[in-house]
Every structure is written in structure tokens, then in C-alpha cells.
């Protein structure tokens, strides 16, 4: 299972009365195996949302829960994929993926078969003995995704995972993620500022306001994806060409632009 709940969540950095209010009154429930993307202007607290689920930060008000249990600290049932990959540079690709399983005391034979499977799935087999520095950004992020997926987590948290990649690599990785998510569905919380990415990947898109971050709108993508049969198109550019896709994208853009206009008014 992997149900994420935000209940009246507020986060203040610094002293409670005078500090920076990053999040206010966040209420959100993400169903098991649902893919939710959060978009919003920079500094709106979307990464803070993810960090609360990861357990890197704790909420000032309210509660963040996974399967009904409030989160206190990080743990391998909530695997994180970071924007800057955050691989261990001193470990080979294999060892980077292995370390989480070792920490869970998984027996060696099982570790080997699980790592072999994920290396195969992510097309990383030839690079098992490479060090991260020897790989391109896209390959490094594949390793990071493999490292998260191999743990068989309840929840996958992705913090602008493709933000540091070039445009072409980004598209390949987006398609890859869709393929992966179909084979092996997970609850995913995906942070991005790229609107297309959110619409293409997510079942629901959450739009946040400028600081203090609140939820402005939640758009249901899954029903439209199903109704318009997006999944029959294999390539991302074909999906992005569909009228229903363009419509949703524009809708989100307008909503985000209002946020920026508000700021200057």
C-alpha cells in the first residue's frame, strides 16, 4: 500500500510567528498507485511537500501520513529520486543500487536477482561496474531511479528528477518512466515546474500558489487520458499534439500565470 495524506499541513521555516511560511493549509490525499504531479512557481513550497513525505523535514502544523502513520524520519519505504541524482560517487552503479537492499538485510542471492532485474529494466547492464562520474546525467538519473525502485517502496518521491537533464534526454526519461510505472505501478509524488511533463506523466496535477504555498487547483488528468486514449500513442510528441493535451496544458499555464500576475499587482 502507499496512501499519502496531507492533513491541514503547514510549514514555517524559522520561528513559528515570524519565520518564512512555506506551506499553509495543505490538504491532499494521494491514492495507492496514483501518480500525482505538483506544479507551481519556484519558491511555492512544492519541494517542501515532497520533503515532508520523505521525512527530511517535519510539518509545523497538521500531519503528513503514509498509510495512516505520521512520518517522523526518512525511510526506505519512501524512496526519493533527487534532482541532482545524489548517487554515492565512491560506489559503482551496482553498489549504489545494492546499498539500500543491504541496509534492509536482504539475503545476498535475492539482492543479486533483484539488482539484475532492475539493471535489465533500466538498460543499465553494461554499466554495472562503472562509477557515477563515468556516466552521463541521463544515465546517472537512471541509476538513481533504479536505486529507488529496487527497494520496492510503497511511495516513490521524485523531486524535479529530469530538471538537470538536456531536452532530448528528458523526453527519453519521461517515456521510460511511463513504461516503468506501467510495468510496476507505484504511488508517485512528482515535483516539477515543467507543465507538459506533469500533464504527460500524472493522473492528477496539483497547482500551487506562490508563498505561502497553498493548493490552488487539482486537475484530473487520468479520466481525460482514458477518454481520449492517450496511451495508444507511443511517442511523447504525439500525445503532446492531441487537442485534449494542449487544452489541459493551456489551462494549467493560465492558472500559473495568474499566480505571477498576482505577485506584481
Amino acid at each position: 500500500m502507499g496512501v499519502i495524506q496531507f492533513k491541514n499541513v503547514g510549514k514555517v521555516f524559522g520561528p513559528k510567528e515570524s519565520g518564512f511560511v512555506a506551506l499553509k493549509d495543505i490538504n491532499l490525499e494521494i491514492a495507492d498507485k496514483e501518480f500525482v504531479a505538483i506544479v507551481g512557481p519556484s519558491g511555492c513550497g512544492k519541494t517542501t511537500c515532497l520533503r515532508l513525505v520523505a521525512g527530511f523535514d517535519n510539518p509545523t502544523d497538521g500531519a503528513v501520513m503514509v498509510d495512516g502513520t505520521p512520518i517522523k524520519r526518512p525511510g526506505p519505504n519512501r524512496a526519493v529520486v533527487f534532482q541532482q541524482f545524489a548517487l554515492f560517487p565512491w560506489k559503482s552503479v551496482y553498489d549504489n543500487i545494492d546499498i539500500g537492499l543491504r541496509n534492509l538485510n536482504v539475503p545476498k542471492a535475492e539482492r543479486q536477482s533483484r539488482i539484475a532485474a532492475i539493471l535489465n529494466l533500466m538498460n543499465l547492464e553494461p554499466y554495472a561496474e562503472h562509477f557515477p562520474h563515468q556516466l552521463s546525467g541521463g544515465m546517472q538519473q537512471r541509476v538513481a531511479i533504479a536505486r529507488a525502485y529496487v527497494l520496492d517502496p510503497d511511495v516513490l518521491l521524485m523531486d524535479e528528477p529530469f530538471g538537470a537533464l538536456d531536452a532530448q534526454t528528458r523526453v527519453v526519461m519521461q517515456e521510460e518512466l511511463v513504461r516503468l510505472a506501467r510495468k510496476n505501478p507505484r504511488t508517485v509524488l512528482f515535483i516539477t515546474h515543467a507543465v507538459e511533463e506533469a500533464v504527460y506523466l500524472a493522473d492528477r496535477v496539483v497547482i500551487m500558489t506562490r508563498a505561502p504555498g497553498r493548493i490552488k487547483e487539482v486537475l484530473d488528468i487520468a479520466s481525460i487520458r482514458k477518454a481520449e486514449d492517450w496511451d495508444s500513442h507511443e511517442k511523447i510528441e504525439d500525445v503532446m499534439d492531441l487537442e485534449s493535451f494542449v487544452h489541459l496544458r493551456t489551462q494549467i499555464w493560465r492558472s500559473l500565470r495568474e499566480e505571477k500576475a498576482d505577485q506584481h499587482a
Binding site: 526518512p74 524512496a79 526519493v80 554515492f88 560517487p89 546499498i99 541496509n103 536505486r147
Partner: peptide, 28 residues
């Protein structure tokens, strides 16, 4: 790098292993 440390937390690194496999090589 801060994210590397956070990744170690996320991966459930036991304390001793955190020292020998993250802090020491990271600082080396």
C-alpha cells in the same frame, strides 16, 4: 553534498555503515 547525505538517510543506512560508507569516503 547535502542530497547525498539525505539519500543515505532515505536508504535506511545504519549508523556504523553511515560512517564507514558515507562520511569517510565522502570526506576523504
Amino acid at each position: 553534498d547535502r542530497p547525498v547525505i539525505e539519500a543515505a538517510y532515505m536508504l535506511g543506512m545504519p549508523r556504523m555503515r553511515f560512517v564507514t560508507e558515507v562520511l569517510v569516503p565522502g570526506a576523504s
